[in-house]
Nucleic acid binder design. Structure first.
Length: 151
DNA sequence: GCCAACGTTGGC
DNA sequence: GCCAACGTTGGC
């Protein structure tokens, strides 16, 4: 049984269209411990909702899957880079990432408003006030409902 | 652009 | 180890 996750991104930084085009990408740049820990828990074949945030209509755009389990986030080693963190070294990496691959684009993106409007999704992390994690777990029943809303 | 919420940092 | 200050996130 795969587990389910949600990957949040600002589309101008990295969009679902880009994943569709590239096929796969390292989910680099996560600098939050809880989000990192979630990635460490991921296993090959786990599935994720790909979510666009910080835009007029935030929405889950489609599905991706984990194709490489957690390994050190090399962007933390890149001096001068946007994601450089001197506390993380190749010998003792602090930050991890997984690789995700494009699986499916939703016929209808499931907007944040649409999810909020569905009473069955009331406990979903994404909808909780102040919950900002960029990598979140998604419960199987929530996954099923979001897919249903995307049809 | 505002601002609530929350994680992180650092002084003590 | 507490907690105030600070920075970031992200919906609106």
């Amino acid at each position: 049984m795969p587990r389910y996750w949600l990957f949040k991104t600002e589309p101008h930084a990295f969009s679902f269209e880009r994943l569709k085009k590239d096929g796969t990408t390292p989910w680099s740049g996560v600098r939050n411990f809880q989000a990192r820990n979630n990635m460490v828990e991921m296993r090959l074949g786990d599935l994720g909702l790909f979510y666009h945030s910080s835009i007029a209509e935030p929405a889950a755009m489609g599905i991706c899957k984990v194709v490489k389990e957690a390994y050190p986030d090399f962007t933390a080693f890149e001096k001068g880079g946007e994601y450089y963190d001197p506390r993380s070294t190749p010998g003792k990496p602090m930050w991890q990432m997984v690789d995700v691959a494009f699986v499916e684009e939703f016929a209808h993106p499931v907007t944040l408003a649409r999810m909020r409007a569905d009473p069955r999704l009331v406990g979903m992390d994404l909808l909780k006030k102040g919950y900002r994690l960029s990598v979140q777990p998604v419960m199987p029943h929530e996954w099923k409902i979001v897919l249903e809303l995307s049809k």
